[in-house]
Design a protein around this nucleic acid. Structure first.
Lengths: 120, 120
DNA sequence: ACAAGTACTTACCCTAAAGTATGCACAAAT
DNA sequence: ATTTGTGCATACTTTAGGGTAAGTACTTGT
């Protein structure tokens, strides 16, 4: 699963910055490139693993589960597996994950405004 | 300045995803770990380079200028240099950068709520 | 008998991003 | 005369993140 290493200078410094800057705190949780994108795709309701995979073709399977596991560990999403075969696993937002929707929404809105204005 | 390479599989795939997912679009602009943090510190008004440095001690100088240059290139911040010595350079949000404030605000708010609920 | 679909896991490798360190130009202060 | 501060640039190394590929277990469809 390629765990994330914890020590090194940046990790320690981050620890310090965490207490000062709320945005830093958020970046620790959804700072990766893919996490906000995954959360966005879950904003419409629960999705199966394979649905997410198809919805985000740019992400490799490894990255997808890795980030799903991390999001689950951070209590942002909830995994539900039905004990059938073939497997049937769905992911959905937790209450805490739902609390992030204003962030994701704001992102989506800004993207549209930005495109309208031709800033790209 | 260590420029960012453009090609490779992920870049091409991102290109595709860009047209489908607004959040992906946003991540291309402020997806790095530091960018939202920098923007947050500029939300209170213009800051000198050295002020930013002190405000975000966890970031190395290299990362700081690198991201400031990228943010400037993406028209999210504006650099102003007074031709004096020692140099006097300030950074502030551009109109487009200001449009991102709802995102940053939403992040900050979520961080506070999350901490209150003891989700960490 | 074989392929296909599901939700992963694991291993190996490679590269982009970040760390570290140093240099620069110039002026004011000590 | 040396140090201090400013806003960077540049080289050199390390590491974390991601790519690719293969395997697993079990069932349904052909």
């Amino acid at each position: 699963m390629t765990a994330i290493k914890e020590s090194s200078t940046i990790q320690e410094n981050k620890q310090y910055a965490l207490e000062k800057c709320p945005v830093t705190y958020v970046m620790e949780k959804i700072g990766g490139y893919w996490k906000p994108i995954i959360l966005y795709h879950l904003s419409g309701g629960s999705q199966r693993y394979s649905e997410l995979k198809r919805a985000i073709p740019a992400v490799s399977e490894k990255m997808l589960i890795q980030h799903l596991k991390q999001l689950e560990a951070d209590n942002l999403i909830i995994r539900e597996a039905k004990p059938v075969v073939p497997p049937f696993v769905t992911y959905r937002l937790s209450p805490a994950g739902n609390g992030l929707m204003p962030v994701i929404q704001a992102m989506a809105e800004w993207a549209f405004i930005d495109k309208e204005n031709g800033f790209f």
